[in-house]
Design a binder for these strands. Structure first.
Length: 596
RNA sequence: GGAGACGUAGUUCAGUCGGUUAGAACGCCGGCCUGUCACGCCGGAGGUCGCGAGUUCGAGUCUCGUCGUCUCCGCCA
């Protein structure tokens, strides 16, 4: 017989009754009746009830066993009597009556939290004992889901003719983007590698190398502060790139992958399998953000013209001064108590608004603090344009265009939550397309790339030569799901002369393009195919599939918010020998000198 | 770098208006129990109320500071 097991803890059923088996696993729970002890034995695969009868030599040892100890038992599989069947257990029709018992690993310490029930506990403790946390059902499931997601991505893309490549982890620091993680070179003292923020240039080089369809579940490293949906340090992208494709080709390819992932790995309903495309400008106009949650409709409606001459000075002054008046129709909000409207206004003020005017259509009348300042004609136009009917409430934002859109966009999200408009079982994708190539830095007035500098401008060289830079659009797109930006992508600029001109507009001289991006610059002179790609964030995908609000819940060993690994003790000081070998000297600011 | 929320037993929480010895459940230790499946019953141990100062006759409770955790802003081409 195998030293540890003949079956796993989820495998046994009525078919095995009467046979002798060996099982190993963790003590999930113990029920000691004095005369008989029941142990629910758990492993990766499931739970099996073990029965310890009082006449066995190891009875007292089994009675002493504590939860989470690892044991091996030999025993006979017995069909349970009708009254003792447990329908809540996959193996509930049988039990194993133990004839031998080996303590593999006894738990001596008090557990820092319970493994057999999923109580909330401080995340710090969970991270410090991650190996215990990962035994719990929720985390165990999440990590498995992550694995299934990777497996399905690979299976799908390989079947579609994609090839997975590895690209370097030790590479060069890139001039744009986030802060780099640096790795000192021993061979070249004073010089550094950087960990890749994304394999962007490598995947483009692979296309120039004649490989047609690239993908990689690629680790990316960015030294930026964390958020609930942003792990500090490292994360993974489903990185893709294709040659000789149009934007439409890429959209179709990605839609197929996303739909398959959600259909096979979640129970969610996919709102539309061909994802709606929203121009960047429209997204800002309607939703006040470039990552709208379109699980609910509720667009912002422009009513600036209606209030040109309004008695309400807040409105008419803004309209006259080039500002805008935007309105949200909160369907069904009119029945809410006054406190609801006060809370909405308090939220808006907290976000920097001067106030949040509102009107409620109730009992055939339009009520609210500003109602008496609005003329009958203005009111008629307002109701017509917003489609407000009995039971609806209108919320107003007035001010400078960008700020007002952004503010009301936030109000829109809160309103949708408060009014229970979000179908939690829905996944609603959209493409945000036609991003501007450039934007003006509000502080410096400089023209800068608004996204990826390697994107192809729409209209090509002609557009760069003839158009106002701020009017030029790029073949640059985002995929957004339920208000979360999953990825950016682009059809790339593969023509060196267009690349030079694009960088020139953003203030980069020719010499700088050649020295900052030597690989692509050189490669594009030796026959570069038109190409494009995208890189959906794997972690955020798994978050959506698992319905988890925090990215750390779908990573086995995440860093905490302050970018520390509490289990391994990283980051940490290194020895003087290691520093000497790298010709590095530590120069801490005085207040941060370690006290050890 | 900035803002907010939180911090009471190993864990989850309660703790009234500032007032006697800070409670409960789970876990842990001991005892009882032969059919439970979140087993049950009896008993016990376990607390620098994050830390420090202040107000007060008296602080878990009020004030200030500080540390920690999380969330958000900045940042993330």
């Amino acid at each position: 017989m195998h030293p540890y097991r003949t079956h796993n803890c989820g495998a046994l059923g009525l078919d095995n009754a009467g046979t002798t088996v060996k099982l190993s696993g963790w003590v999930h729970r113990k029920r000691d009746h004095g005369g008989v002890v029941f142990i629910d034995l758990r492993d990766h695969y499931g739970l099996t009830q073990i029965v310890i009868n009082p006449d066995v030599p190891f009875f007292s040892e089994a009675e002493r066993v504590r939860n989470e100890s690892v044991i091996t038992i030999v025993g006979e599989v017995v069909k349970r009597t009708a009254e003792t069947i447990n329908p809540n257990m996959d193996t509930g029709e049988i039990e194993v009556v133990a004839t031998d018992f080996i303590m593999e690993s006894f738990v001596e310490e008090t557990l820092p939290f319970t493994v057999n029930q999923e109580l909330e506990c401080p995340e710090e403790t969970r991270l410090a004992y991650r190996f215990l946390d990962l035994r719990r059902e929720r985390m165990h499931k999440n990590i498995l889901l992550r694995s299934k997601t990777c497996a399905l991505v690979r299976e799908h893309l390989v079947a579609k003719g994609f090839v997975e490549y590895h690209t370097p982890i030790l590479t060069s620091s890139s001039p744009e983007g986030a802060r780099d993680y640096l790795v000192p070179s021993r061979v070249y003292p004073g010089q550094f590698y950087a960990l890749p923020q994304a394999p962007q240039q490598f995947k483009q080089l692979l296309m120039v190398s004649g490989f047609d369809r690239y993908f990689q579940i690629a680790p990316c490293f960015r030294d930026e502060d964390s958020r609930a949906d942003r792990s500090p340090g490292e994360f993974y992208q489903i990185d893709m790139e294709m040659s000789f494709i149009t934007q439409d080709d890429l959209f179709a390819e990605l839609e197929e992958l996303m739909v398959r992932l959600f259909r096979e790995l979640s129970n969610k309903t996919i709102a539309a399998e061909v994802f709606p495309r929203i121009a960047y400008r429209d997204a800002m106009e309607w939703y006040g953000t470039d990552k709208p949650d379109i699980r609910y409709e509720m667009k912002m409606i422009d009513c600036t013209d209606i209030f040109q001459n309004c008695e309400l000075k807040v409105f008419s002054h803004q309209a006259a001064a080039g500002g805008v008046i935007k309105v949200l129709n909160g369907k069904g909000a009119a029945e809410r108590p006054r406190k609801f409207f006060d809370d909405m206004e308090r939220y808006a003020r907290g976000e920097g608004a001067k106030g949040l005017a509102w009107l409620a259509v109730r009992d055939g009348e339009v009520k609210g603090p500003i109602a008496k300042f609005i003329s009958d004609d203005e009111m008629r136009q307002l109701l017509e344009r917003t489609g407000a009917v009995e039971g609806d409430a209108l919320f107003f934002g007035a001010g400078q265009a960008d700020e007002t859109r952004e503010l009301l966009g936030k109000v829109r999200q809160l309103l949708a939550r408060q009014l229970d408009m979000i179908d939690q079982n829905l996944v609603s994708f959209c493409w945000i397309v036609d991003f501007p190539m450039y934007e003006k830095n509000p502080d410096t007035g400089q023209i800068e790339f608004s996204h990826n500098p390697f994107s192809m401008p729409q209209g090509g060289m002609d557009a760069l030569l003839t158009k106002d830079p701020l009017d030029i659009l790029a073949y640059q797109y985002d995929i957004v799901c339920n208000g979360i930006e999953l990825s950016s992508g682009a059809i790339r600029n593969h023509r060196p002369e267009v690349m030079l001109k694009a960088f020139e507009i953003a203030g980069y001289p020719e010499s700088e393009v050649k020295t900052q991006f030597p690989a692509l610059w050189k490669a594009f002179h030796y026959g570069a195919p038109p190409h494009g790609g995208i890189a959906p964030g794997l972690d955020r995908m798994v978050m959506l599939l698992a319905d988890e609000p925090n990215i750390r819940e779908i990573i086995a060993f995440p860093l905490n918010q302050r970018a520390q690994d509490l289990l391994m003790g990283a980051p940490n000081y290194v020895s003087q020998e290691q520093l000497d070998e790298l010709c590095l000297e530590i120069n801490l600011p005085p207040e941060e000198t370690p006290t050890v």
